[in-house]
Deep mutational scan, measured.
Amino acid sequence: SEEEIREAFRVFDKDGNGYISAADLRHVMTNLGEKLTDEEVDEMIREADIDGDGQVNYEDFVQMMTA
């Protein structure tokens, strides 16, 4: 549901600035027990970053979650 997606976005957007940065993503993945290299984190950001601004905004996140 849209509310679940919004809630998930809030979990990833640690600093609440409306964007998921590589640092935000790394933090959440580490908490989930996933040890990722910087390259892996950057690749995840690139794949999710639809508009190419280097971070994942809510619209990018929705597209990723509903793809």
Results as ranks from 00 to 15, higher is better:
Ser1Lys: 12
Ser1Phe: 10
Glu2Trp: 15
Glu2Cys: 13
Glu3Asn: 11
Glu3Ser: 11
Glu3Arg: 09
Glu3Phe: 09
Glu4Trp: 12
Glu4Ile: 10
Ile5Ala: 03
Ile5Asn: 01
Ile5Arg: 03
Arg6Asn: 03
Arg6Ala: 02
Arg6Cys: 06
Arg6Val: 04
Arg6Tyr: 10
Glu7Gln: 11
Ala8Met: 09
Ala8Trp: 07
Ala8Leu: 09
Ala8Cys: 05
Phe9Met: 06
Phe9Gln: 00
Phe9Gly: 01
Phe9Arg: 00
Arg10Trp: 03
Arg10Asn: 07
Arg10Lys: 11
Val11Gly: 06
Phe12Thr: 02
Phe12His: 06
Phe12Asp: 00
Phe12Ser: 02
Phe12Trp: 06
Asp13Trp: 01
Asp13His: 00
Lys14Gly: 05
Lys14His: 12
Asp15Leu: 10
Asp15Ile: 06
Asp15Gly: 07
Asp15Phe: 07
Gly16Pro: 00
Gly16Lys: 06
Gly16Met: 07
Asn17His: 06
Gly18Ala: 01
Tyr19Ser: 04
Ile20Gln: 00
Ile20Val: 05
Ile20Met: 03
Ile20Thr: 00
Ser21Arg: 07
Ser21Pro: 08
Ser21Lys: 06
Ala22Thr: 13
Ala22Pro: 11
Ala22Val: 15
Ala22Cys: 07
Ala23Gly: 09
Ala23Lys: 11
Ala23Thr: 11
Ala23Asp: 14
Asp24Phe: 03
Asp24Thr: 04
Asp24Pro: 00
Asp24Ile: 05
Asp24Tyr: 03
Leu25Cys: 03
Leu25Ala: 12
Leu25Pro: 00
Arg26Cys: 03
Arg26Gly: 03
Arg26Glu: 02
Arg26Pro: 02
His27Ile: 13
His27Gln: 13
His27Ser: 07
His27Pro: 02
His27Asp: 07
Val28Pro: 00
Val28Asn: 00
Val28Gln: 01
Met29Ile: 14
Met29Arg: 01
Met29Lys: 01
Thr30Cys: 08
Thr30Ser: 14
Asn31Ser: 13
Asn31Leu: 15
Leu32Pro: 00
Leu32Glu: 01
Leu32Asn: 03
Gly33His: 11
Gly33Arg: 09
Gly33Ser: 11
Glu34Leu: 15
Glu34Lys: 15
Glu34Gln: 14
Glu34Pro: 14
Lys35Trp: 13
Lys35Pro: 11
Lys35Gly: 12
Leu36Glu: 02
Leu36Ala: 04
Leu36Arg: 07
Leu36Gln: 03
Thr37Phe: 05
Thr37Asn: 05
Thr37Lys: 06
Asp38Ile: 12
Asp38Gln: 12
Asp38Lys: 14
Asp38Val: 11
Glu39Gly: 07
Glu39Pro: 05
Glu39Tyr: 11
Glu39Cys: 13
Glu40Lys: 12
Glu40Gln: 13
Glu40His: 07
Val41Phe: 15
Asp42Phe: 08
Asp42Val: 06
Met44Gly: 01
Met44Glu: 01
Met44Thr: 02
Ile45Tyr: 05
Ile45Lys: 02
Ile45Gln: 02
Ile45Trp: 06
Arg46Thr: 06
Arg46Trp: 06
Arg46Glu: 06
Glu47Gly: 15
Glu47Gln: 15
Ala48Ser: 09
Ala48Lys: 08
Ala48Arg: 10
Asp49Ala: 09
Asp49Thr: 14
Asp49Ser: 12
Asp49Lys: 15
Ile50Trp: 09
Ile50Asp: 04
Ile50Thr: 11
Ile50Tyr: 07
Asp51Asn: 14
Asp51Ala: 12
Asp51Pro: 06
Asp51Cys: 10
Asp51Thr: 12
Gly52Val: 14
Gly52Cys: 10
Gly52Asn: 09
Asp53Gln: 12
Asp53Thr: 14
Asp53Phe: 10
Asp53Arg: 11
Gly54Tyr: 05
Gly54His: 05
Gly54Cys: 09
Gly54Asp: 05
Gly54Arg: 05
Gln55Arg: 13
Gln55Phe: 13
Gln55Val: 09
Gln55Leu: 13
Gln55Asp: 07
Gln55Lys: 13
Gln55Asn: 14
Val56Gln: 00
Val56Thr: 02
Asn57Thr: 08
Asn57Gly: 08
Asn57Tyr: 15
Asn57Lys: 14
Tyr58Ala: 02
Glu59Gly: 05
Glu59Arg: 05
Asp60Pro: 15
Asp60Tyr: 15
Phe61Tyr: 05
Phe61Pro: 00
Phe61Ser: 00
Phe61Asp: 00
Phe61Leu: 10
Val62Cys: 02
Val62Pro: 00
Val62Ala: 03
Val62Gly: 01
Val62Asp: 00
Gln63Leu: 09
Gln63His: 14
Met64Pro: 01
Met64Glu: 04
Met64Trp: 09
Met64Val: 07
Met64Ala: 09
Met65Cys: 04
Met65Ser: 02
Met65Pro: 01
Thr66Gly: 09
Thr66Lys: 07
Thr66Asp: 04
Thr66Tyr: 04
Thr66Cys: 08
Ala67Thr: 14
Ala67Glu: 13
Ala67Gly: 09
